[in-house]
């Protein structure tokens, strides 16, 4: 039992410490795969780390005095949110904490007067508005299966959530696309600069502030992919495999579709996404009723 307790604390701490690094590798894989899909060689796997290290050493230029604090806030609150997940805490709280991270990024981009940055910030705001309800509804539909909002409970299930919530799983695809900043929903800024010269919400970041924002982005991606792994949490290896498949699907979609405007993003998540989840919950309830 004591061993178990130590594992319960040590393992999450290790996970939290390695989350940004893991995110860096995921970004590396992303760049490699995307390059291959476009018949290029692509950079080495650890290129994102080279980038961030180089950015950190650059001469510092900032757009306002609170920008660095906010950039750090974006990273730190993403990590806090992931920490809550790693410690098996409440799903709703995790989602609300991500909102603080989003707020930091949005305010940092809106507080500069550059039209590109402001436009990016506004679109990031709409992105947040698009995916937050889906995540909350996901948490609620998970509650309908497990009877709890706690991640701990999900990790102790002896059946995969996916078998109960296949449609909710599908509804997560647009959320992942938005959070990875991939086409067709990369309205605020594209993860890879393949469609734009000025990077929307990231325009006014440079040097170490950009490095912090990159770290934040990596952490957030790890967080989102971890949410996907919850759908097959025992054994977790299948969940990780599932997350990687979904990640690959998002990359394919990114390379197939051009960017759509924010209206179609909002419409898709608020109609198709919400309807998928409701259909799933109605299905769950009718399953319970039939059993009775």
């Amino acid at each position: 039992m004591a061993e178990n307790n130590i594992l319960n604390i040590v393992l999450p701490v290790i996970l939290v410490l390695f989350a940004p690094i893991l995110g860096g590798f995921i970004m590396g894989i992303d760049r490699k795969l995307t390059a291959r899909m476009q018949s290029r060689m692509g950079p080495p796997l650890i290129q994102p780390f080279y980038d961030v290290i180089k950015l950190w050493g650059k001469q510092p230029f900032i757009s306002s005095s609170i920008q660095p604090i906010l950039a750090f806030g974006y990273f730190a609150f993403s990590l806090t949110s992931f920490a809550l997940l790693a410690f098996g805490q409440d799903l709703l709280l995790i989602i609300f904490t991500v909102a603080i991270a989003d707020l930091c990024l949005i305010v940092a981009s809106l507080n500069s007067k550059s039209p590109y940055s402001v436009l990016g910030g506004k679109r990031e705001l709409i992105s947040m508005m698009s995916y937050e309800p889906i995540l909350l509804l996901m948490a609620i539909s998970i509650y309908y299966v497990t009877g709890s909002f706690m991640v701990q409970r999900i990790l102790s299930l002896n059946y995969p959530l996916l078998t109960y919530l296949p449609l909710v799983f599908l509804a997560l695809i647009p959320v992942l696309i938005i959070d990875l900043k991939k086409s067709p929903y990369d309205v605020s800024a594209s993860a890879h600069a393949h469609q734009e010269l000025v990077r929307g919400v990231f325009t006014e970041f440079s040097g170490y502030t950009l490095a912090l924002v990159e770290l934040g982005h990596w952490t957030k991606i790890v967080l989102m992919l971890s949410l996907v792994t919850l759908f097959w949490a025992t054994p977790i290896i299948i969940g990780i495999f599932l997350a990687l498949i979904l990640f690959f699907v998002v990359l394919v979609i990114d390379n197939v579709y051009p960017r759509l405007n924010w209206k179609s993003m909002l419409k898709t998540t608020w109609s198709v996404g919400v309807l998928l989840i409701i259909a799933n919950i109605v299905g769950l309830i009718s399953r319970v009723v039939m059993r009775i």
Partner: peptide, 16 residues
């Protein structure tokens, strides 16, 4: 965050 901002500092530049 405040500490990092103080440590790294940076010149405030007009926006792009």
């Amino acid at each position: 965050g405040y500490f990092i901002a103080k440590k790294k500092g940076g010149v405030i530049k007009p926006p792009y």
